[in-house]
Simulated assay, not measured.
Amino acid sequence: MPGLLRGVARTAVVAGTATAVSNRVTRRQQGRWAAQQGYQEPPAPPAYQAEPPATPAATDMTSKIEQLKQLGELKEQGVLTEAEFEEQKRTILRT
């Protein structure tokens, strides 16, 4: 059993060392390539300032107002009768 543990420990050390060396080589190569290409660190993004989200009620009301305006225009153009206009208006205001 001690021989098995020693073998597992040796394998873990070798694998860990190989990983560390591989990572170091990769970082060094990336640094060299970046230097050859004149790479510069991108500027830090500006601080994010989110606008407060529009409330669903406000968005919904804006949509309803737009629909009512369109209905009014259709009525003025003679496309809708007074009864049709009133029916559609009730439908929009109910939802």
Score class of each variant (00 low, 15 high):
V8R: 07
P46H: 07
Q70I: 01
V25N: 11
T95Y: 04
W33V: 05
R32E: 15
E87W: 10
V79I: 15
E51S: 14
E73L: 15
L74P: 00
T11S: 10
L68E: 07
L93N: 11
Q37P: 00
N23D: 15
A50F: 03
E73V: 10
T11D: 12
A9N: 07
F85G: 00
A35V: 04
L4W: 13
R32F: 00
V21N: 03
A50P: 13
G72L: 08
D60Q: 12
V14A: 10
T81F: 02
P46K: 06
E84L: 03
A12Y: 04
L93R: 11
M61H: 10
Q29S: 11
E86F: 07
A54N: 10
T59A: 09
T19Y: 12
F85N: 00
G3N: 05
E76Y: 00
A35W: 03
L80W: 08
P42N: 05
R10P: 00
R24N: 12
A44E: 15
K64Y: 01
G16I: 00
V25D: 11
V14S: 08
T91G: 06
Q70F: 02
T55Y: 09
G38F: 04
R32N: 11
P2S: 04
Q49P: 01
Q67C: 00
A47F: 06
W33I: 07
T19D: 07
R24L: 13
T62W: 05
R32L: 13
Q36C: 07
L71K: 02
G72S: 10
F85W: 08
V8S: 08
V79E: 05
E41Q: 14
G7F: 05
S63P: 00
E86R: 13
T81G: 07
E73S: 14
T55V: 02
G72Q: 13
V8Y: 03
A50L: 06
Q37T: 12
K75H: 14
P42Y: 01
S63D: 13
E87C: 04
P43W: 09
A15D: 02
Q40R: 15
T62R: 14
L93G: 09
Y48D: 09
G72H: 11
T17R: 03
L93E: 13
A34K: 12
L80P: 02
T55K: 13
K89T: 04
E76I: 01
M1Q: 12
A34H: 11
K75I: 03
V13P: 00
G7W: 06
A15I: 03
G78E: 04
T55H: 13
T59C: 01
G72T: 06
G72N: 10
G16A: 11
A47S: 14
P56L: 06
A20R: 05
R32W: 02
A54S: 10
T26M: 14
W33S: 12
P45A: 13
R94Q: 15
G38W: 03
T95F: 06
L68D: 04
A47T: 15
S22I: 04
L5Y: 10
T11P: 01
A18G: 15
L5S: 14
